[in-house]
């Protein structure tokens, strides 16, 4: 088992790789359900991003702590228990302090449990890494996810309702394209953004 040497540079690397190089949404295309379902407005997207980041950081941390005492055969159920504990915690906290967002996200808060990003990071990284790198990885992935969700929900909110965070920003007389906040709009936005990244990747790749 390879354990990364312990220094600041590797921590930074673990942190930044989740934001750009291995962005969970745009590069690895993981955890698509919440990315499409709750991105009808920027505040919902941000709420989802922050909740997921919280769960990612803490589940990565705990999984890394218990990684040496958990027998290999039962590691998946144990990961599931740890992850769902933090998901329920987030759910209760959101219900208590930001009830509006809690209501808007609805069933997708408990569904963070089955978000492939979290299980994927637990399995591929946290169960093999020391605590600090695991936390850095979770934080980076979480921020990468939050950014992706914010971009998608921002685009959808601006085009679909002509507002951003509830404030009117489009010129007067703009009639919102409602389709963008309906289910098809989610697929269209995601498809076009992925296409854009791929196109940029092709362009840059050709130069190098």
């Amino acid at each position: 088992m390879h354990v990364a040497p312990f220094n600041i540079m590797t921590l930074f690397n673990e942190f930044f790789k989740g934001i750009v190089k291995e962005n969970p949404t745009f590069r690895l295309v993981l955890g698509i359900c919440p990315t499409l379902a709750v991105t009808t407005s920027l505040d919902n997207g941000l709420g989802m991003g922050v909740a997921t980041t919280f769960v990612l950081v803490f589940s990565n941390m705990f999984i890394s702590i218990v990684r040496n005492i958990v027998p290999k055969k039962v590691r998946i159920p144990i990961f599931i228990v740890i992850i769902s504990t933090f998901v329920t915690t987030v759910e209760l906290i959101m219900a208590a302090y930001v009830p509006d967002i809690h209501e808007a996200l609805g069933i997708f808060i408990p569904l963070i449990v089955v978000n492939c990003i979290i299980m994927g990071r637990a399995e591929a990284f946290a169960s093999k890494a020391q605590v600090l790198p695991a936390v850095a990885d979770g934080l980076g992935m979480g921020i990468g996810f939050t950014m992706a969700v914010s971009i998608i929900s921002g685009v959808r909110e601006i085009i679909g309702s002509g507002t951003i965070l509830g404030y009117e920003i489009m010129f007067s007389g703009y009639s919102p394209a409602v389709i963008m906040i309906l289910p098809p709009g989610a697929f269209i936005t995601m498809g076009l953004i992925l296409c854009f990244f791929k196109y940029m990747g092709n362009l840059l790749g050709r130069k190098v």
């Binding site: 389709i179 289910p183 098809p184 697929f187 269209i188 498809g191 076009l192 992925l194 791929k198 196109y199």
Partner: peptide, 22 residues
Amino acid sequence: PRAMQGMPINFLIGAMMALAFF
């Protein structure tokens, strides 16, 4: 188109199907 291959086009197909089911 090259930039559309793979995931992007799948999402756009999804969009058309969602529209149909809508």
